[in-house]
Design a protein around this nucleic acid. Sequence first.
DNA 1: AAGTCGGGGGG
DNA 2: CCCCCAGACTT
Length: 350
Amino acid sequence: MASPASAPPAAALDPADLSAVRAALLAWFGRTARTLPWRGGQEGARDPYRVWVAEILLQQTQVARGTVYYDRFLTAFPTVQDLAAAPQEAVLKAWEGCGYYARARNLHRAAQQVAQDGFPHSYDGWLALPGVGPYTAAAVSSLALNEARAVNDGNVRRVLARLHAEPQPTPAWVQARADALLDSARPGAWNEAVMDLGATVCTPAAPRCGACPLQPWCAAFASGAPAAYPAPKVRAAVRDVPVVAVLIGTPQQAVLERRVGALLGGLMGLPAEPLASGETPQAALERLCARLPAHPGAFLGSLTHVMTHRRVTLHLYAAQADLPRHLVAQEALSRLDQKALALAAQPALL
DNA sequence: AAGTCGGGGGG
DNA sequence: CCCCCAGACTT
């Protein structure tokens, strides 16, 4: 007798399985594909600018949040020429609040390159642009150029780790499996299908295996504990970082400094200094005011802000100085500085 | 290979 | 509280 309807899943995917998996996932995608603002145009021939901006914006950013910033960014810069011609402050203002601001700085630089030389016409050409890595180059070249490149992102990693019940999928392992499974006739649709599956069905916690088109081939489902794959990553501990900052002026019109370096680089913010080891906030305030220079004033309040790898405790003071003020609403600020300004704007209860 | 870089969603 | 998210770059 042939295998029963509830046939046990194969331990590994043979060529026949690969073909069946492709057909099952693409059929599912044909029924359930999400409607997203960068998914206009013909399959495999999408607008490269719109796809590119979306892929940068969606790096380490969930789609539901990314769409908000996407609409704002595309309204500000409808074409790559508009983006290339803009000053960096305008680009960061359009990116304000979205995080990982190096993405915006690199996208801006790359746009100036593309405005000169035209859009790349291959995976390798895209990969050469600042801010474009293997994932983004594969996504844009498959979606806009119909090039057979398999994306490797968090969704793909999780879907493939479960399909093969691999608890420790290395990047190379994931890429090899993704390359083997890619439907090279429809690379754009295939890549979007895997990512849609990972985002809506094969979710990190509580996957909806009952709705999954790949369930018959999924070794993690067969194991009875699909959410155990892949094993959680070890993460760096969160450090506590105490900081003092000063408000000179008003929350609407204040002295601001441009941040330099990797952390919030290019954004504006209240003048601030980290506390040295064992230093009191008052001592750090004196150092900060000596640097500006300014006269220290009253304590306004404290707040905390978490940034993945650090937990910032900011102590805010008033200060007085004859220094140029900025219209705060016109500048690009981090969430941390927005919180500090909101604290200063509150009446002095609490 | 390991660190660093924001901010928010969802269990 | 925890983990994760349409990753890329630096060291």
